[in-house]
Computed example of a mutant assay.
Amino acid sequence: MLTVLPIRYVADIEASRSFYTGLGLIFRSEESVPVWAHLAAGAGAVGLHDASVSKGRPAGTVELGFSTDEKLEDVAARLTAAGYAHELVEEDFGRSIRVTDPDGVVVQIQEIDTDTMRRAQSLL
């Protein structure tokens, strides 16, 4: 199942986390590291990503993303069967599939691995 997970690239994780939890989102510390804050909502979530370690995405950028509890290989097989071109990408936080929508916007489907995120954070 996919969960809507837009990614908001921010200049200050703590200030942004405080702002969005003030709006009513719930900080999930078990799914967060210092450069990533996972904030749950009733129907989806928001990921806050430190822009300074985002490989070129400036603060203020937002990407449409989804997280999944399915194996990415199963998602990839479904996309292939439906005729979608896609790419499986190894990320600092786990893996994702990148697929381009009809307007040319890349959408991510993420398999977030918090152990991988923590190892990557220790290398920064």
Results as ranks from 00 to 15, higher is better:
Ser52Ala: 15
Leu5Pro: 00
Leu72Gly: 05
Ala40Phe: 06
Leu2Thr: 01
Met117Tyr: 00
Ala51Cys: 04
His38Lys: 15
Ala82Cys: 04
Gln108Thr: 13
Asp115Val: 14
Ala45Met: 11
Val4Pro: 02
Leu25Ser: 03
Asp115Leu: 14
Ala15His: 07
Val46Lys: 13
Val62Trp: 10
Val33Gln: 11
Ala40Val: 11
Gly24Val: 10
Met1Ile: 11
Val10Trp: 01
Arg119Glu: 14
Leu48Met: 07
Met1Ala: 15
Thr68Ser: 13
Ala11Ile: 00
Val99Ile: 14
Ile26Gly: 09
Ser29Met: 04
Pro58Gly: 10
Ala11Lys: 02
Val62Leu: 11
Glu111Thr: 07
Met117Asp: 05
Val89Gln: 13
Val107Trp: 03
Glu30Ala: 14
Phe93Leu: 06
Arg118Ser: 13
Val105Phe: 02
Phe19Trp: 12
Phe66Ser: 03
Tyr9Gln: 06
Val10Gln: 06
Gly94Phe: 02
Arg8Leu: 15
Val33Asp: 06
Ala77Arg: 14
Gly94Ala: 09
Ser122Trp: 02
Leu23Pro: 00
Val33Pro: 03
Glu73Gly: 12
Ala43Trp: 09
Arg98Met: 02
Ser67Arg: 08
Gly24Glu: 08
Arg17Pro: 08
Val33Glu: 12
Asp50Gly: 06
Arg119Trp: 04
Ser29Leu: 09
Ile26His: 15
Val107Lys: 01
Gly60Ile: 03
Ser67Glu: 08
Leu48Ala: 07
His86Glu: 09
Ile112Cys: 10
Ala15Met: 05
Thr21Ser: 11
Val106Tyr: 00
Gln110Lys: 07
Arg119Cys: 06
Leu64Asn: 09
Ala43Pro: 03
Gly24Arg: 02
Ser96Cys: 14
Ser32Cys: 05
Gly22Val: 12
Phe19Tyr: 15
Val33Cys: 09
Val53Pro: 05
Phe19Asp: 13
Ala120Ser: 14
Thr68Val: 09
Ser96Val: 05
Ala76Trp: 07
Tyr20His: 08
Gln110Met: 14
Gly56His: 06
Arg78Cys: 00
Glu91Tyr: 03
Glu91Ala: 13
Asp50His: 13
Val53Met: 11
Ser18Asp: 13
Trp36Arg: 03
Leu5Gly: 03
Asp101Ile: 01
Glu31Asp: 12
